[in-house]
Nucleic acid binder design. Structure first.
Lengths: 338, 338
DNA sequence: AACTGGCACTCGTATGCGCCGAGTGCCAAA
DNA sequence: TTTGGCACTCGGCGCATACGAGTGCCAGTT
């Protein structure tokens, strides 16, 4: 087990390195943090920390930098979450309050997160899985062409075009619309399949084909749209990444474009509570030199989606975590209101 | 006026520089292109071209690189548009044919363009301005809460939440829905304002407030949504930009996040025909070292939106223009079909 | 008049060398 | 266990040198 002071040394190293972006040596440490011991002592502690794998030297006779394991310890044991100040909180709320629709809420959230953390922000659109159906609308576009519009309680709208096997009258359509809504409105997505199972039974034989086509399209939409969408912002902040640009930045940009990858990563977010994945803890190779701070958000108690930021492992964890948590909280509020 | 051979020399310089990314000298030129003259002659021509401002030397005693003016001449007079090969065209069509809805069409287009050109692709969502209304739907969510859903002929769906000044019955809602659609369905957006002007007249006095609220929200949607949306992809290709990364890449990333800026740039696209804006021809400062190739696309004759790519001024113009044109053409087809 | 070969010159890049200093590990003393 | 001292390492920086690609100019040729 590491002594109390050694933990303090580790904390000091992380803080200094995050600030200066340069390997930190024993002398500088004792000067900037009053640890009450001499550089020589700190050197011994550093040697011990290095043995344990918490810090490393880029080259012999250079200062130390934290390893992924070091950051992990720092995040778990040594650092708290730095809360936002009152003015910051107010600014967040004001900014988000100006949103006019769901797209706008997400867009503003991304901007805000990117600005607050000066890193890359990722926000997942509120998921359909946990949401409920607010309304299903059917529109007749042509005799044998119907548009299905699905509206969720999070304000999301999905539409699908349906080619019917047979012409479908306005009255049948109205009938189907009414029955459909009476069954599924207000219900959870996951419950919908059972609820509509025998819906076709009440219809004229010649309409049954169309009805079941509509139903299966509805079910498809529910499933397919769980390929959820993301919004990303603040990529310009990647330029603050490090000195060795091209090699570091390229795989990150590539990973960011692979929404599947990001969704998977966000999906691993523990719920409730914030998840911090550091460096090689990220399965995706391109993100091995980044850390991801993510958290679920949602109206009411349940998380309907995730949001987070992607930054260099050398990031200000307490500050970033504070910003992520605060933003998630306020977005949840906004969603609950609308 | 420049002699024929000098133009050939300029063309050769552009081609070589685009290929090698290095300043090109007289000797290398004569070796790689059989101009039929000696390096010394080429040197004279180069001196002349430099006097005219078409090429420049990064440093004394280095080779020449084209200036923005040189690229301009190249694009206008010396290079054609390199058409896609048949297999490429087939691949484009196949890839786009797989799209399931409008979002997917746009997403695939972006991916495709980025891949084909190995640059950053920008695709504007089909604009509302030129489109027509397919259907307007009104849903009652609560006694005094209505959701407005607008469906366009390009498959785009916009929704708005409306708080009514007074409760609004289902029958009134159905009435309004019917009247609204009979007036605006199939009409152009620009015509809608006149068409609905006196629509409130036919309603009960207590409903008029709500009706006019709904109408004004509809009009707002038509206007507001002309703040059109964009999709961007291939940002990882920015890493192939040049050697002097951070300084070049940062402002570009910033500009790409400012959708307003991009929309303005795309808006300047001459219609019909492809627009190429080279280096300083771009008003936005961050894009002074990039070129933008853009073109309108749309179903039928009219362009409903623009798409294009952003790359270094040192880009393969004929190839890029070919790809942009081909993709625009096929996206137009896809839109026309759906 | 246009083209060509030759030549002196420029200058950016690569290479090698020496110095400096931050930082280390180790050891003996407190 | 802590501390001061000391020899050692090694990356970064400055400088001088050599190299070579490329140029401009000029005189000679076609």
């Amino acid at each position: 087990m590491l002594s109390e002071r050694r933990l303090q040394v580790l904390r000091a190293i992380v803080q200094d390195y995050v600030g200066t972006e340069e390997p930190v040596g024993s002398k500088a440490l004792t000067e900037r943090h009053n640890l009450g011991v001499s550089p020589a002592t700190v050197r011994n502690d550093m040697a011990a920390l290095e043995d344990e794998g918490y810090i490393a030297q880029p080259h012999t006779s250079a200062g130390r930098i934290p390893t992924d394991k070091g950051y992990r310890l720092f995040v778990d044991k040594l650092a708290g979450v730095k809360p936002m100040t009152a003015p910051e909180r107010r600014a967040i709320q004001n900014f988000l309050d100006g949103a006019v629709d769901l797209d706008d809420v997400v867009a503003r959230t991304v901007r805000l997160l990117a600005q607050l953390t000066r890193q890359v922000a990722v926000v997942q659109y509120p998921s359909l899985t946990r949401s409920t159906v607010r309304h299903v609308e059917l529109l007749s576009l042509a005799p044998a062409r119907v548009m299905l519009v699905l509206i969720t309680d999070t304000g999301r709208v999905e539409q699908r075009m349906i080619d019917c096997p047979a012409p479908f009258g306005e009255t049948s359509l109205a009938d189907l619309r009414a029955r459909l809504n009476s069954r599924v409105a207000g219900r959870r997505f996951t419950d919908v399949p059972q609820l509509v199972e025998d819906l076709a039974d009440g219809f004229d034989p010649e309409d049954r084909g169309t009805v079941s086509t509509v139903l299966s399209t509805l079910l498809e939409t529910l499933v397919e749209e769980n390929e959820e969408r993301l919004m990303i912002g603040g990529t310009a902040n990647l330029t603050r990444f490090g000195h060795d640009f091209p090699l570091t930045i390229r795989p990150v940009l590539e990973a960011l474009e692979e929404q599947v990858v990001l969704l998977k990563l966000l999906g691993e977010t523990q719920d409730p509570g914030m998840t911090v994945r550091i460096g090689h803890e990220n399965a995706h190779e391109g993100l091995n030199s980044t850390s991801i701070v993510s958290v679920g958000y949602g109206s009411g108690g349940e998380a309907v989606a995730k949001l987070g930021v992607v930054g260099p492992t050398r990031m200000d964890y307490p500050g970033t975590m504070g910003a992520v948590r605060a933003v998630a909280r306020y977005v949840g509020q906004i969603l609950a209101e609308s």
